[in-house]
Structures are given as structure tokens and as C-alpha cells.
Computed example of a mutant assay.
Amino acid sequence: MLNLDARYYVSPDTLLKERSSIFARSWQHLGAASQVAEPNAYLAADIAGYKIFVLRGKDGVLRAFKNMCRHRGAQLLEDGNGKCNGVRCPYHQWLYNDKGDLLSAPWFGDKPPIVLEDWPLEAIHVDVWRGLLFAALDPEMSLIEQLGALPEELADEPIETYMLDRQDKVEFDANWKVYTDNFVEGYHIPGIHPGFFAAIDFKQFATTAHKGFVRMTCPPREDLFYRGKWLWMWPNWTLSLFEGGMNTSRINPLSVGRTEQLYNFYFDDLTPATKAARDKTIAGNLAVVQEDCDVCAGTHKNYETGMFTTGPLSSRHEEGVHYFQQRVAGALGI
């Protein structure tokens, strides 16, 4: 097994192809379904540069749209979540209802008049799985098909009972695939995460690839906030378990050399009595991530030089890397 050639990590043309063949064709995990549980609640997000939003209508129906006005393409809602009674374009004040219908185009003129019914928002796909919210622009398969064997993997975990506590974002200077390669293997733990390494029985660290996801497991020692199980799902989201909760993240490319990781932290108890423990778990998780970001940024810089020649992948520790890279290669036709 050989590492994917470095040129695919630093080429702007490759990222453009990934946008259309991976990010536009896959289901993207956006956050908690509870964020859009109430009428008029919305969640707006960036998917590798594509702007979208999900909105709960007054009729209780969840809908999703491209986050752009049909007039001249202005972004309608800023990224994030909130509530809105209709969607008004900030540029020229076109107004849409919660079903995406155009209600008015003020000061447009009448020679000829605009036909409102001809210009609704462009709908995309939305779905919910076990309390987690997903959207897709043009999916090549259903959400449940993309999840593969994950539903069985998490069948005994009460993930839908966990409540969203906090969101966070980490940005770093590396291609999204550099970070994903790093996430789906534990081989780097002894060198990059000394505190983490001391808290696990690394000799028993195991990585296996399955339909739709990669599983990493390792028995924890004392005082580790993780439960010893980490999951990555195609193409770019993760789920890690700890006592009384979990986190999810979405690995989102901002450019060929910059990536954001969007975190959601969930717990089964959000009372004030558990706040200190929750904060400690979140801080510990983000500290580990920052260690990853630093080494990924250095790796990306080396890839940019064009001097790196493809190296071998460990059959013991990098099965997940091989699985991810093969999925990417298949999507790109390389």
C-alpha cells in the first residue's frame, strides 16, 4: 500500500474536482437535529464552498436550499443557526417564505413584470439520522446507504439521547485530506500526543475499515476522557465517544491549503453540576486536535515543495488511511 501522491493534496484543480465529485454528491453532517426542531429555526453552513441552509417551516416540515438568492446569487443567511420569519435577501430585498417560494421582488419594474412563481429557491436534500442532521446537494445515494455499516456499529449507543452542549471550530493550514489521513490512524499517537499515549494501552490500538467508516479502538488507562473508540465516516465527518456523551466533527475544506474542523459536543447531562467536567472534556479534546493541526500544517508544506515521493502505508496501523485514499481516488477517477 502506497500513500496517495502528494500532488493531489496541493492542486487547486483537484479541490475543484473534489467539490463536484465528493462534496456535492455526498451527505454532509451539519449538526444536531435539535438546532432546527422549532418552526422558523434554520442552520446555514458551508460545504467546501457551497452555501446551503436548512429551515423548519411553520408546517413542521424540514427543508433545505442553496443559500443564494435567485436574483444575482447573494448569500441569504449568514453561516450559523437562528430563527427567521421568512428569508429576505440583504442585497436587493427579495423575500422568500419558509417553503422557498418567492413572495416579492420590490422595485423590480413591470416591463415585463416578474413572475414570482418562476423563481423559488433551489431546493436540496435534507435528512435526519438518530438526532443528527444531514444535507446533500446532489447525493449519489441515500443517507442510510452512505452510512453503510455504521447503524449497526452504533446500535447499542444512545446517541440520540445526548444533548448539544457546545460548538467549536478549529482552522489550520493544511489540505483536508492531510488532516483526514491523520485522523484515521493511531500510528502518530506516540510521537504527536504524549499525554494521550500515556493514557492508553497503545499495544492494543486497532484500526479497521468497514463499509462507510473506519473504526479505531484502544483500551484506555485511568483519567482518559475518551472511552477508547473513535469513528470516521465517509467522506469527512467523525464521531468520538466518551463517558456520558460524544463529539462529532466535520472536516471542511476552505481552500486547497486551509481546512476547518467544525465540532459539536454532546452530553447526557447538561446541569450546572456537570459543567466543570464537561468543560474539561471539551478542553482535552481540543488540545489533542491542536497537536494534530501543527503536524498536518508541516506535512502540507512539504507536499507543496514537490519534493516528497510517495511512501508506504503500515498494514497494521494505516488500513484506515488506505481505505480513505482509495475512496478519494475512486471519486476522482485516478
Rank of each mutant, 00 (worst) to 15 (best):
P120M: 14
E122M: 10
I124A: 09
V126D: 03
V126T: 15
V126N: 11
D127N: 13
V128A: 08
V128R: 08
W129A: 06
W129D: 08
W129G: 07
R130Y: 04
R130N: 12
R130F: 00
G131C: 01
G131E: 01
G131A: 03
L132W: 12
L133Q: 06
F134D: 07
F134W: 03
F134E: 07
A135Q: 11
A135I: 13
A135V: 15
A135K: 13
A135F: 13
A135G: 03
A136Y: 10
A136M: 04
L137C: 06
D138W: 09
D138H: 11
D138A: 11
P139W: 08
P139F: 15
E140H: 09
E140F: 02
M141K: 12
M141L: 11
S142D: 13
S142C: 00
S142V: 06
L143H: 04
L143T: 07
I144R: 12
I144L: 15
Q146W: 07
Q146Y: 01
L147G: 10
L147R: 02
L147F: 07
G148R: 03
G148K: 12
G148C: 06
G148M: 11
L150Q: 08
P151F: 01
P151C: 07
P151G: 04
E153P: 05
E153R: 15
L154T: 09
L154A: 13
D156F: 09
D156C: 09
E157G: 00
E157M: 12
P158H: 01
P158R: 05
E160P: 08
E160D: 12
L164Q: 00
L164F: 00
L164G: 06
L164P: 04
R166S: 13
R166F: 14
Q167N: 15
Q167G: 08
D168V: 01
K169S: 10
K169V: 15
V170E: 09
V170Y: 03
E171C: 11
F172R: 08
F172M: 10
F172G: 06
A174C: 14
N175G: 11
N175R: 07
N175E: 05
W176K: 08
W176F: 14
K177L: 03
K177T: 00
V178Q: 11
V178I: 14
V178F: 06
Y179R: 12
Y179A: 07
T180I: 14
D181F: 04
N182E: 08
N182W: 03
F183P: 05
F183D: 01
F183K: 01
F183R: 02
V184W: 04
G186L: 11
H188W: 07
H188K: 01
H188G: 06
I189Y: 01
I189V: 14
I189T: 00
G191Q: 04
G191R: 08
H193D: 07
H193V: 12
P194W: 00
P194K: 00
P194V: 02
G195Q: 13
F196P: 04
A199R: 14
A199L: 14
A199K: 15
